[in-house]
Design a binder for these strands. Structure first.
Lengths: 128, 128
DNA sequence: CGGGATCCATGTGGATACTG
DNA sequence: CAGTATCCACATGGATCCCG
């Protein structure tokens, strides 16, 4: 990335297959995935806690995303066979590696919001 | 994030609306968006260069994403009304702010790949 | 409480063809 | 070269009902 050599021989093109960015966004895609991870980043959460923290999510989507993240080994599920049942979701070590992504997206999201805020025409002709 | 206080009074819940992460992933979502930005991060690119660098993308998707990114002020389009026509795409300053996100995702993507690689049962019982 | 199953509306994205 | 237009297949995701 940092080597600006346009005609380097070793890196042919860089197809989507095998591209780390593609792998990551493949797993993190989906409307709620990032938000779920963001919640889990603050600690262990139960199913109902997640559902409560994510206003608007349906139980289907929550369960689905949770399962996806589990299959990708980003979180673990701990089931307490009690009555009433209780399930705890906890990020794995790999799951915690998502934090820099969340952080970066938070930073960018803020700049995006700030830009759209100061977006009125008063200085639309600012140089690039 | 770093304050583990579960019952802090100032942060009620954090609905998806207004959440920076949601804003960012809203703009960066889409199958090819990240890859396009990644290409543009290395410098100015023409339409055909992008299409060439992104094997499998259709002209429709490329144009569509490019327009989206332009509307979000993440890139600018410079059209040369020559024959044959020539269009150059260049990230804006705001667009370059995506780089940390790409970098973070690259890092995570690599760890993901490495984990899936060393995923055979030989040490499935490693501690979290 | 923590889901699974089903149905369905919409969005996303691919293929193809056409244009300035 | 740099797109646009149209059609269509499939994936995403919401609503609702049901179950252990």
């Amino acid at each position: 990335m940092t080597s600006p050599s346009p005609s380097a021989g070793t890196d042919a093109i860089e197809p989507p297959s095998g591209c780390p960015v593609q792998l990551a966004s493949d797993v993190l895609a989906g409307k709620w995935t990032m938000l779920i991870v963001q919640e889990l980043l603050t600690g262990v959460k139960r199913y109902s806690e997640l559902q409560n923290a994510l206003p608007g999510i349906s139980s289907k989507m929550l369960a689905q995303r949770l399962r996806m993240l589990e299959e990708s080994e980003l979180l673990t599920r701990k089931i307490y066979a009690t009555i009433p049942p209780r399930t705890e979701y906890r990020l794995t070590r790999l799951g915690h590696e998502i934090e820099p992504v969340i952080l970066a997206m938070t930073g960018f999201g803020r700049k995006l919001a700030a830009t759209q805020d100061t977006d009125d025409k008063r200085q639309a002709s600012l140089p690039l």
